[in-house]
């Protein structure tokens, strides 16, 4: 680590850092760590309805949850959900970012307004798409019929895979512009002269993308993938409001299952156990991925 010490000297850095970090870290600890400890405590007890008390049950809840198929089923659905979102959002966002990185009339306006879908509350996103996809007044079915893609109205939530696809597309519709702007920021950090040198060498657009853009975008993509994975794994509201995990469990991701177990099946202990397992999995994944993102890269 080759940073230069600041003028006030290395010795006082630690104290200053402590003072500066006390508030941000204290808040995160109070709102994340403390509740998590409480969740761990609940997971070791046989608690049914929230708020009621229950006897100590050791690891019984964990044993039951981990041997029950629904947990693994939900985990599988979660993997599909996370991977689906990552793929769709990356493709859409990368396309959008590449387009917005070009120079054309109106690009400044486009760069601002592409973000429009991201500033819409989830509840409104749900209202919009429930209406657009419904056969009573929805535009999507007639449009697809006009384009010759389907020949009769289809049910976008009629089966597990259909519902999952619809959900992924709707969630991606909402998030891809944000990712696109983040990627655009990454693209803008690539010095233009590299491209010019490559163009002089006669490299085509595709070759330039593969040789320059893609590798240089890697760090940004990596962070966005980590964040995106964690964030989309935790997405609950849009799934709950659109399908509530249905049909027939086809979109029952882990957060949905946890919610149902806690508030529908009234097994708070089981829900907490699932939560702890999920958190451990996610923290492990995050740590592995983040290993490459320590602040040491910042210096220069």
């Amino acid at each position: 680590m080759a940073s230069k010490p600041t003028s006030s000297g290395r010795g006082s850095d630690g104290r200053v850092a402590f003072l500066l970090l006390a508030l941000p870290l204290g808040l995160l600890a109070a709102t994340l760590i403390v509740p998590m400890i409480s969740a761990i405590n609940i997971s070791l007890r046989d608690i049914r309805v929230i708020g009621s008390d229950g006897p100590f049950a050791g690891l019984d809840n964990y044993a039951r949850v981990l041997t029950d198929g629904t947990f693994w089923h939900a985990l599988g659905i979660s993997v599909v959900w996370v991977v689906g979102n990552a793929v769709v959002q990356t493709i859409l966002a990368l396309t959008a970012a590449l387009v917005l990185n070009e120079k054309f009339p109106g690009v400044r306006v486009a760069r601002v307004w592409i973000i429009l879908t991201w500033i819409i509350p989830t509840v409104v996103v749900v209202i919009i798409w429930r209406w657009l996809l419904s056969p009573s007044g929805g535009m999507v079915n007639p449009l697809l019929i006009q384009l010759g893609i389907i020949d009769r109205p289809m049910g976008f939530f009629a089966s597990g895979p259909a519902a999952m696809t619809s959900l992924i597309l709707i969630n991606s519709w909402r998030w891809f512009p944000f990712v696109a702007i983040m990627l655009l920021a990454g693209l803008q950090r690539i010095p233009g002269d590299i491209y010019e040198a490559a163009a002089v060498d006669g490299a085509g657009a595709v070759a330039r993308f593969r040789a320059i853009t893609w590798p240089l975008l890697q760090p940004t993509l990596l962070v966005l993938t980590v964040m995106g994975t964690l964030l989309s794994f935790n997405v609950f509201d849009i799934i709950w409001l659109l399908t509530a995990g249905g049909p027939a469990g086809g979109t029952e991701t882990l957060p949905v299952l946890i919610y149902e177990t806690a508030f529908k099946a009234y097994r708070m202990g089981d829900a907490a156990a699932m939560s702890v397992v999920a958190s451990v999995l996610m923290i492990g994944l995050a740590l592995v991925l983040l290993d490459r993102l320590a602040p040491k890269e910042t210096g220069r």
Partner: peptide, 20 residues
């Protein structure tokens, strides 16, 4: 209806009111 797998009361009413 093809989207009935995702219906709550409201969609059913809308379907009825629109004479679908």
């Amino acid at each position: 209806s093809p989207d009935a797998a995702n219906w709550t009361w409201g969609e059913a009413e809308a379907c009825f009111a629109s004479e679908t």
